[in-house]
Structures are given as C-alpha cells and as structure tokens.
Simulated scan of single mutants.
Amino acid sequence: MKLHIDNMTCGGCVRAVTRTITQLDDKAAIEADPESRTVILETTATGADVIRALEGAGFDARPA
C-alpha cells in the first residue's frame, strides 16, 4: 500500500507515522520518505484502518 501524507515533513513526523502504524500491526514493513511525503507499507491492517489511525494522530493520509 502506498500513501501520501501532506504534513509528514521531517524525521520526527516519520517516527510518529511509523509508531502509529506499528500500533496497528507490529510486523508492518514501513518505508517513509518525508521529502516526497510518501509511505510505502506492507501490513495486515486495512487501508481504511491505517488512514483512520494516521488521521487520529494528526496526519492527513490518502492513497497515493
């Protein structure tokens, strides 16, 4: 799954996004790039659950 997160702009944001996703799936494989504001992940969680969790953490996520 690939997501675009408009307000993921720094390493601190990447850590927060990673922490949020791993709370849903502690075995998720996450590749985040703050420069392009994209996250590529492999997870057992649904896309809707991931987006909802990220929005709850203050990140505006959408499919990329």
Results as ranks from 00 to 15, higher is better:
59 F>M: 07
3 L>N: 04
40 I>V: 11
62 R>G: 02
44 T>A: 14
36 S>M: 06
6 D>F: 11
52 R>D: 13
7 N>K: 13
42 E>T: 14
10 C>S: 10
56 G>V: 09
22 T>W: 07
28 A>L: 10
2 K>T: 15
8 M>K: 05
2 K>W: 05
16 A>N: 10
29 A>M: 07
26 D>Y: 11
21 I>N: 07
58 G>L: 04
2 K>P: 03
20 T>I: 10
6 D>E: 15
58 G>W: 02
50 V>L: 08
50 V>T: 13
48 A>S: 10
32 A>N: 06
4 H>I: 13
39 V>F: 02
37 R>T: 07
2 K>G: 08
58 G>R: 01
64 A>G: 07
7 N>H: 12
32 A>Q: 02
39 V>D: 01
34 P>M: 10
57 A>E: 01
28 A>Y: 15
39 V>W: 00
9 T>I: 14
36 S>G: 04
33 D>I: 10
48 A>I: 05
19 R>A: 15
53 A>S: 13
9 T>V: 13
54 L>F: 00
9 T>G: 05
49 D>T: 05
49 D>Q: 12
16 A>L: 06
26 D>W: 07
59 F>I: 08
21 I>P: 06
47 G>Y: 00
26 D>L: 07
27 K>V: 08
3 L>R: 04
51 I>K: 01
4 H>L: 14
2 K>E: 15
10 C>V: 08
3 L>E: 03
12 G>M: 10
14 V>P: 01
26 D>G: 15
54 L>I: 03
48 A>H: 01
43 T>K: 03
8 M>G: 04
63 P>M: 03
55 E>P: 00
42 E>D: 11
62 R>I: 02
45 A>K: 04
8 M>P: 08
32 A>S: 13
